[in-house]
């Protein structure tokens, strides 16, 4: 089955970032396909490489990046949500005159159309959040 996953909550603040990850991993392990993981609302904070959790805790951001690398998953941060919350890639830094970037490997910033497309192209769209 082909899934699109939407993550609406930030890492560490809310369990949905963890649950979405575990769901994605379990689906892949079962041989399912993930068309896209779309991060919205505070969920875009899953995609900043500047997080530094305590050493004895899970590293949620790195975990996503590794999942994307291992399984070649398309992970998209909503551009409007990312701009509000200061998640920046090279293109956004240039467009908006920012002096730094913080996007983590494996993520890209794009529009909400990517979420709708995921809903159209996938067999199931699963939303994680409140």
């Amino acid at each position: 089955m082909k899934f699109t996953i939407q993550v609406n909550e930030g890492p560490y603040q809310h369990q949905s970032a963890d649950t979405a990850y575990h769901f994605a991993k379990a689906a892949l392990d079962k041989g399912h396909e993930i068309f896209r993981i779309f991060f919205y609302h505070d969920g875009v904070n899953n995609g900043t490489r500047l997080t530094t959790p305590p050493q004895d805790d899970r590293n949620i951001v790195n975990r996503w990046s590794e999942l994307a690398r291992e399984h070649d998953i398309d992970m998209v941060l909503c551009v409007a949500a990312a701009q509000r919350r200061g998640i920046v890639d090279d293109g956004e830094a240039e467009r908006n005159g920012k002096d730094a970037t913080n996007i983590a490997p494996g993520f890209r910033i794009s529009g909400l159309g990517q979420l709708i497309e995921g809903g159209i192209e996938s067999d199931r769209t699963i939303v994680f959040g409140d």
Binding site: A80, L115, I116, E117
Partner: peptide, 11 residues
């Protein structure tokens, strides 16, 4: 915002 963007997809 999603609804407004999504309207362009003619669903």
């Amino acid at each position: 915002e999603v609804v407004l963007i999504g309207a362009a997809f003619e669903q």
